[in-house]
Computed example of a mutant assay.
Amino acid sequence: MQRLEDWPTRLAEFIEARQERAFSRGVSDCCMFVADAIEAMTGTDPAARWRGLYFTDKGAHRLLRDNGGVVGLCSLVLGPPIPAALAGRGDVVLIDAPEGEALAVCLGGTIAAQGGKGIIFLPATAAKAAWKV
């Protein structure tokens, strides 16, 4: 995957458009949020093979279990993780969420993550690992 020339604008527009989109398993959960951000920046959907396969917690847990959890699933698509300190704008990061590990998008000094009622923003220091996009 390669970022499009205007990826910064595309990422900003994506974040703006998703501000108030509520959490929905299989549609706007942490993995699909990150996949949608990557698609906005690259034009390639990294989650195409999983879309429409789950819409419940049980289905999500099965998908994660079968692919090595959140880290395994992300690594399957983007390669091995790197230290969180090396994450740059537009990269994927791993954070701790109340439900367990979750994926988010680095915006520079902040991280954007799918929350219950829309995007939540955290300091970049909340990242535990990262993947280059």
Rank of each mutant, 00 (worst) to 15 (best):
V77G: 01
I111F: 10
D6Y: 06
D91T: 08
R49E: 12
V93W: 05
A127I: 05
G59W: 09
A60P: 00
G116W: 01
A48F: 10
G43Q: 04
M32Y: 07
L86P: 00
V77W: 08
D91R: 08
C106P: 00
G118S: 07
P98F: 00
S28T: 10
D66H: 12
R10A: 15
T42Q: 03
T9Y: 15
G69C: 06
A84L: 08
H61F: 07
V70M: 11
A87R: 06
P83M: 09
T125A: 15
G118T: 04
A37R: 07
T44Q: 11
D45Y: 04
T125H: 06
P83I: 10
E5Q: 09
D91K: 06
G43I: 05
Q19H: 13
N67L: 11
G59I: 06
S75Q: 00
M1W: 02
T42I: 03
V133W: 12
A126P: 05
S24Q: 15
E5M: 01
G26I: 05
V71G: 03
S75T: 13
R18W: 11
A12D: 15
A97V: 05
G79L: 03
A102G: 07
G26M: 04
Q114G: 11
W7F: 06
I82G: 01
D6E: 14
G69H: 11
E13D: 15
A87V: 04
E13R: 15
T56Q: 11
D96N: 13
A130I: 05
E101V: 06
V70C: 05
A47H: 03
S24L: 14
R62L: 15
R10M: 10
P8H: 08
L94N: 09
C30N: 01
L53W: 07
L86Y: 13
N67D: 11
L64M: 14
P80M: 02
